[in-house]
Amino acid sequence: MVIEVYSLSIGSWKEIESESLKGVSPSDIICNWVTVNGRIFWDAATPEDKEDGVYRTCLILSFDIALEVFTVIPGPPQLDVSGGFEFTLSAYDDNKLAIIYVPRVGRPPKYLYSLIHLWVLEEKGTSSSTERWIWTKIYTSNPCPAKFDVPRTMWGNKFVFFCIREPSLTNESGGEMENRFSLSIITNEGKIFEIPQCYGSWALNHVESLVPVGNIHFEEP
């Protein structure tokens, strides 16, 4: 695995040490990422974790932007990723990594309902021991409809989801629409709202850049 970082200050690429990533399969670094408190986090897995297309354990890959160091963090030990589940990474309280975990109850494809769990990561000290990272489950929802798709992100104190297996919607102008669902972890109240339909849409938190990206110049190879 070769990893390079592009520096805006010097305008060039440099290779980053990846010795700590031994045992992590490049093909299993899932495109589920979030930036929290100066670090980028991804889902990850080891080659031995996947059997018949199902992951057995949860790993988190962390990259410290300032120190340019990678760390592999174990996921919550109680988090079962071997069955019908969906989870995603997000930011909680602006400076903590969170996992939104949605196990489905029942037999596929006719699940009875889903539950929504929120795990938050606390870091203790700087040792390399797995005890350095402490996961705490701070929220569990009431049973929710199983039609909810992968949780996309946290916004303030709300979750945002895709809704699936819904009939096609149209607005007053005849445009196609689709549903989103938000759930407040403070009040346990949910809300469905509509947005214009688009293929492969995602939900991301927006933070303004300190660097004017318009000043980046690309050279022809």
Score class of each variant (00 low, 15 high):
29 I>V: 15
103 P>A: 11
106 G>Y: 07
16 I>S: 01
158 K>S: 07
69 V>W: 08
198 C>I: 12
201 S>E: 12
50 K>D: 00
25 S>M: 08
173 S>I: 04
30 I>L: 15
90 S>E: 04
127 S>T: 15
64 D>M: 03
165 R>H: 12
132 R>E: 03
159 F>K: 00
95 N>T: 13
181 F>W: 12
11 G>W: 06
206 H>D: 01
182 S>I: 10
214 G>K: 10
129 S>T: 10
163 C>D: 08
117 H>K: 14
169 L>W: 05
135 W>P: 00
88 T>C: 11
215 N>V: 02
10 I>C: 08
193 F>Q: 06
58 C>V: 09
50 K>P: 00
104 R>G: 06
206 H>I: 06
174 G>L: 02
145 P>Q: 08
22 K>F: 11
182 S>K: 00
134 I>N: 11
164 I>W: 11
27 S>T: 11
187 T>Q: 06
91 A>L: 09
141 S>I: 08
188 N>M: 10
120 V>P: 00
178 E>M: 15
206 H>S: 07
161 F>Y: 09
174 G>M: 05
78 Q>R: 09
185 I>E: 00
20 S>N: 10
129 S>M: 08
13 W>Q: 05
141 S>R: 06
84 G>T: 07
71 T>Q: 14
101 Y>V: 03
215 N>G: 09
166 E>C: 04
1 M>A: 14
182 S>V: 11
186 I>Y: 07
134 I>M: 07
22 K>N: 12
100 I>K: 01
64 D>T: 02
153 T>C: 15
196 P>S: 12
187 T>S: 14
106 G>K: 08
108 P>K: 08
180 R>V: 11
125 G>E: 01
26 P>F: 10
67 L>R: 15
59 L>H: 12
79 L>G: 03
63 F>H: 02
29 I>W: 02
131 E>I: 07
49 D>H: 06
41 F>A: 02
109 P>Q: 13
11 G>Q: 10
1 M>R: 09
115 L>A: 04
148 F>V: 02
65 I>C: 09
13 W>I: 04
10 I>V: 15
46 T>S: 15
